[in-house]
């Protein structure tokens, strides 16, 4: 099995990240081989043998300038290549009408859809626990919040990661390119239940998504999860007890 590599990429900007990753992989790979080959050659050639004399030299300015400037140039180029992808992913916010609110808490993802009226904070909001449904090939905007500690919204196949910080709302986006079911782990240590804090992202085709939305996001559909306000109080009550955490951690297997 040789799939020990990046997981399949299914988002638009993922390609750019993968491209940079491979570029750096080759640059550092070549550097690594050069350094190690030189070192091994020196170790073999210049090992202590009878009669061998070491060279008395304090340095060589030309050489030193070369090996300062060449890596510096490579690194500058790498920086320049990194900047566009970064500004595309994190610094621009493409227009979209598909907005989902994600509120992290110990140890769940709460995914809130604005409901038929298209506004958050109204009575017809729909909140799902640990599952998110989005259409394929559509820009999705995520408004990330946290109720308690810092969590991190990580979708390996989307090459997407963003911490959710309590007291802030952080806006992110992605565009999935392939329908499927993807894991949504939490990537920032957030307490004893950090491992196992995991949601699922379902990427549907446009039709499927419409069907799903009709069933679940309309005013009549029952909310999938309990009301929000008590969650924090619950977490606080549970936390200090030692028995509870164990259940929490194991329940998710």
């Amino acid at each position: 099995m040789l799939d020990w590599w990046l997981p399949e990429n299914v988002s638009t900007y993922g390609q750019e990240i993968d491209w940079l990753f491979h570029l750096i992989y080759y640059i550092t790979g070549v550097t690594f081989i050069l350094v190690f080959a030189t070192m091994l050659a020196f170790i073999v050639m210049y090992r202590d043998r009878p009669g061998r004399k070491a060279r008395y030299t304090h340095g060589n300015t030309t050489l030193e300038i070369v090996w300062t400037v060449v890596p510096a140039l490579i690194l500058v180029i790498l920086t320049l290549l990194s900047v566009p992808a970064w500004s595309k992913i994190k610094m621009t916010m493409p227009e979209t009408d598909f907005i989902v609110q994600v509120t992290a808490k110990q140890f769940n993802w709460q995914i809130t859809y604005p409901g038929p009226d298209g506004k958050f904070g109204t009575a017809d909001d729909k909140t799902l626990l640990d599952e998110m449904h989005v259409p394929v090939n559509k820009i999705v905007r995520v408004h990330l919040k946290s109720q308690d500690v810092i969590h991190s919204f990580f979708v390996p196949q989307f090459r997407m990661k963003q911490d959710a910080v309590p007291g802030r709302e952080i806006k992110q986006w992605f565009e999935a390119t392939k329908p499927g079911k993807y894991e949504l782990p939490c990537a920032e240590l957030c307490g004893f239940g950090h491992s196992g804090m995991r949601g699922w992202i379902y990427v549907h085709t446009a039709d499927e998504y419409a069907k799903w939305a009709a069933q679940n996001l309309t005013a009549e559909a029952a909310p999938t999860t309990e009301a929000k306000p008590d969650d924090k109080a619950d977490a606080k009550k549970e936390a200090p007890g030692k028995a509870e955490p164990k259940k929490e951690g194991k329940a998710k297997k």
Partner: peptide, 8 residues
């Protein structure tokens, strides 16, 4: 004499 590469 030792090899010095011009280094003194």
């Amino acid at each position: 004499p030792r090899r010095t590469n011009g280094s003194l």
